[in-house]
């Protein structure tokens, strides 16, 4: 029966081909450092799940953001756990993505034929940092407010277009409701869309080109 269902599905979805190309493929013998990519992916998924839960109670307005976080921490069942995981997951994700990049660099895995995997990886690193920057403002507490004030001021020092960049980031001259709204939008829509798309390309390339092997003396 199970085999019949599998056959039926395979005729339509081609899952056996997917199994053969994705799961049943030969890969070189590698070490534990090669799990960093999947660990980053896992952290991204965790951030996605906890983030979605957080939006149920979070209110992206300056008047209510801090209170809604307070409510998530104290009023919502296991809200503290969800926010705790999201908070620490952000730091861990930056660490893991960064070390993953270092591993790729030291193993020379960015060289032929994996140049584009590297380029998408750099985009993922930058997008992850962007997530950290935009997410930091959302609780609207003293720490986040002043960090974002200084962070956006830094943009203003860029020659010629600096003030323009800062105004785009802030949505005006000061940190305001508009700033919070666009950071929120970037944090839950724009950057995640960039991340999902880039991760897809990144993974397609990994399956297509294979995991790099650990360089030997004669490589």
């Amino acid at each position: 029966m199970a085999a019949k269902i599998l056959d039926w599905l395979d005729e339509r979805l081609g899952i056996k081909t997917v199994y053969d190309t994705v799961l049943d493929r030969d890969v070189p013998k590698v070490n534990w450092w090669f799990t960093l990519g999947s660990a980053s992916l896992f952290l991204f998924v965790m951030q996605g799940i906890t983030g979605i839960f957080l939006t149920v109670y979070y209110v992206p307005t300056p008047d209510h953001a801090a209170d809604s976080i307070l409510y998530i921490m104290n009023g919502v069942d296991f809200g503290w756990l969800i926010r705790g995981i999201h908070h620490w997951g952000a730091s861990l994700m930056v660490i893991f993505v960064f070390i993953h990049m270092l591993r790729t660099f030291y193993c020379a895995a960015y060289k032929f034929p994996r140049e584009l995997t590297w380029v998408t990886g750099v985009i993922l690193l930058l997008a992850t940092l962007g997530m950290g920057f935009t997410g930091y403002l959302l609780p609207m507490n003293q720490r986040s407010y002043w960090a974002t004030t200084v962070g956006t001021e830094i943009a203003a020092t860029v020659p010629f277009i600096g003030t323009f960049i800062m105004r785009v980031l802030r949505g005006g001259t000061d940190i305001s409701a508009v700033t919070l709204a666009r950071f929120f939008s970037a944090h839950i829509w724009i950057l995640p869309a960039v991340l999902v798309l880039t991760i897809s390309i990144h993974m397609y390339l990994i399956v297509r080109l294979g995991i790099s092997s650990i360089p030997k003396e004669d490589d």
Binding site: P62, A66, L70, M73, W80, L81, R83, G84, I85, H87, W88, P139, M140, N141, Q142, R143, S144, Y145
Partner: peptide, 14 residues
């Protein structure tokens, strides 16, 4: 980390 370290609270933005 979420259970034993938690998230530092900070006063509301001022």
């Amino acid at each position: 980390l979420a259970t034993f370290v938690g998230v530092d609270s900070a006063p509301k933005a001022d």
